[in-house]
């Protein structure tokens, strides 16, 4: 029976355990360690690990799986890994296996941790809200494009293939049918293809917006959803600006025309702007929409500030608070 292979990772080097036998690899320098833990495979590490190519190996760190697989190993995550636990409680043995003294090991630990943390912070500090604005504008354009193509194709369908509409009421299915058959004229089929490609593109942008929001404004995304959140950020230009706005302003962002009209003519001000698009607002009875819009806006304000100033994630707590309050409001009114 083959012996268990385990990989114990340390800042100063790697140790592969074949059963009880410990085979060490000390990083040639701090740079090599940093590359390894950043997910790159450097030559020395690669030639060390390749000895076990094709074999299953236990590892404690989930993010190591990608790196190890790329060299051809078969990593299996084990949390915790018994060999790692043993070495953590026996520093002397760790040093002995690696052939290092305490100062060398400490130096590796401190420097590698500092550099990796610094790299991560620089990466995160790149303001990605500009990318969100661009992605959102692309999204809206794609929706317009899809509508234009849809209208044009429908004109053709009504004139030359009305039966298609009878058969399949859903426009999306009609498009797919047109695309899959070779219909005449050829340009119609090409337009169907264009529609499908636009739809694909729109999904890709939607995903990108989701990822960006998750990265730069996860709390706002948790409270009102990534697209709506992106819309708010886009409207005011940046997350920083959104974070500086009072909740009352956030509440009526997008309803400026109605707002100033009411202010000038002393009429009734709008209750909601972009926020109206949230199902909790437009899906609720008219009488409580104002309360819900106000509630939502105040939570968005908090979320935006946390996202801009500290990056902690409290989205789940805010969402839960909101759900409870909305439920209470709805059952009270309904």
């Amino acid at each position: 029976m083959e012996e268990h292979l385990s990989l114990v990772e340390t800042p100063a080097g790697l140790i592969v355990f074949k059963g009880e036998e410990a085979i060490p690899y000390v990083f040639s320098d701090v740079e090599e360690a940093i590359s390894y833990y950043s997910g790159e495979i450097v030559r020395g590490v690669a030639s060390f690990l390749r000895k076990w190519k094709g074999k299953s190996i236990l590892v404690e760190r989930r993010s190591a799986v990608k790196t190890l697989s790329s060299i051809g190993l078969k990593p299996i995550v084990r949390e915790p890994l018994d060999k790692a636990v043993k070495l953590r409680s026996d520093f002397e043995t760790t040093l002995k296996i690696l052939g290092l003294n305490m100062d060398e090991y400490r130096n590796f630990t401190l420097t590698v941790a500092e550099r990796i943390t610094q790299d991560r912070i620089s990466e995160l500090a790149k303001r990605k809200d500009l990318d969100i604005v661009m992605a959102l504008q692309s999204y809206d354009e794609l929706v317009k494009i899809m509508n234009v193509i849809q209208d044009r194709i429908l004109v053709w369908v009504k004139e030359r293939a009305p039966s298609l509409l009878e058969e399949k009421k859903d426009f999306e299915k009609v498009i797919e049918l047109i695309y899959s058959q070779s219909s005449e004229p050829d340009y119609v089929r090409k337009m169907a293809e264009l529609y499908l490609k636009s739809r694909e593109c729109r999904s890709a942008v939607e995903k990108q917006i989701g990822d960006l929001m998750e990265e730069t404004a996860p709390n706002v995304a948790a409270v009102i959803g990534p697209i709506l959140g992106a819309r708010l950020i886009s409207k005011v230009g940046s997350l920083a600006r959104l974070a500086s706005l009072p909740a009352s302003t956030i509440q009526i962002l997008g309803a400026e025309k109605a707002l100033f009209r009411a202010l000038r003519k002393k009429g009734k001000p709008p209750k909601h702007g972009i926020i109206f698009q949230h199902p909790w607002v437009h899906g609720s009875p008219r009488k409580i929409r104002g309360k819900i819009a106000r509630l939502l806006a105040s939570k968005i304000a908090v979320a935006a500030r946390v996202d801009h100033f500290s990056g902690r994630f409290i989205g789940e707590e805010i969402k839960k608070e909101l759900e409870d309050k909305v439920k209470a409001l709805r059952s009270g009114a309904g």
Binding site: E9, T10, P11, Y37, E60, R61, R62, S63, E79, P80, A84, R88, S89, F91, T94, T109, L110, V112, A113, E114, I116, T117, R120, I121
Partner: peptide, 27 residues
């Protein structure tokens, strides 16, 4: 802090993901 004090190991991670940073630690 960590620049000036050579006994602090800075780890940017969610404390829930214990095994993401276990490789840096001793008992």
């Amino acid at each position: 802090v960590s620049g000036k004090r050579r006994n602090v190991v800075p780890i940017l991670a969610d404390a829930r993901n214990v095994f993401e940073y276990s490789w840096l630690l001793q008992e």
